[in-house]
Write a protein that binds this DNA or RNA. Structure first.
Lengths: 134, 134
DNA sequence: ATAGTTGCAAACGCTTTGCACTGGC
DNA sequence: GCCAGTGCAAAGCGTTTGCAACTAT
């Protein structure tokens, strides 16, 4: 089911602003900050307000359509359809490398077995130095 | 060498404010927010300002005497003498469980071998559900 | 003496809020 | 027509800054 239909099915309205925000999030691979998203929305919908972007992101996150993560104190948003994965962020060059979900499965399992802790390791960001910057 | 001496050795002054802040950080096991630290400092030094707490934390962090971490968008500070460790934070009850450094060593090693990525896994926070809240 | 350090007050950046108006359903 | 959703403006929060006064060395 498309995001649009999920919204409707839950009784939320499909406004032009939400349409555009969903559209951008789907065509954008990067992890957008609220501000970067606002800058793009602004070009397509005249007069949008930042608060609308924030409110929409909150809504989409609560519906599980968007994932919110944190990279160095900055909040980044990402649509959640493409399967879970993780990120390696280089603290020197800033490059972000994708990491498949399997990379953290062993850790997830051991935390559950040894500590009874069900970790949310679905969209994790790990900082460090990449191969080129070491 | 004590923190006090490290400060002096680098040409920084040992003011009453810094003395108190260092004292609290050493006698406090928890991870303090800047605000929580300020509240404690306030009781010992009349008229301290928040900016002094922030400036001192920045200084101590830059000297490596204090570690700054992030839990759900809140910055927490922690003195760095007690060896590296990690945290499991329960998203339901908020409880924070300590995790020994070894728990992430296997992951660190595999990231280095498979991706050439030297991860900063020294004070990591993992969110999830603890044993009681699952 | 003199640079490092402080308190004050003001500004900051990001995010949230209250409100009356608008527009999707 | 109803009520969810919007733009606007203002406030909120944690943090940073410029500056004149102070003080540890």
């Amino acid at each position: 089911m498309s995001c649009n239909n999920i919204l409707k099915a839950k009784g939320y309205r499909l406004t032009p602003q939400r349409r555009v925000i969903l559209d951008i999030l789907h065509h954008e691979d990067a992890h957008l900050t609220a501000d970067a998203l606002y800058e793009q929305v602004k070009d397509k919908v005249a007069g949008v307000d930042r608060s609308t972007v924030y409110r929409t992101l909150d809504l989409l996150e609560s519906l599980g359509l968007v994932v919110k993560a944190e990279i160095h104190g900055a909040h980044v948003y990402h649509h959640s359809e493409e399967g879970h994965h993780h990120h390696l962020k280089c603290r020197a060059c800033g490059k972000v490398v994708e990491l498949p979900e399997e990379a953290l499965e062993a850790l997830e399992k051991s935390l559950l077995e040894k500590h009874g802790f069900a970790a949310d390791l679905h969209h994790h960001v790990i900082t460090g130095l990449c191969a080129e910057c070491r």
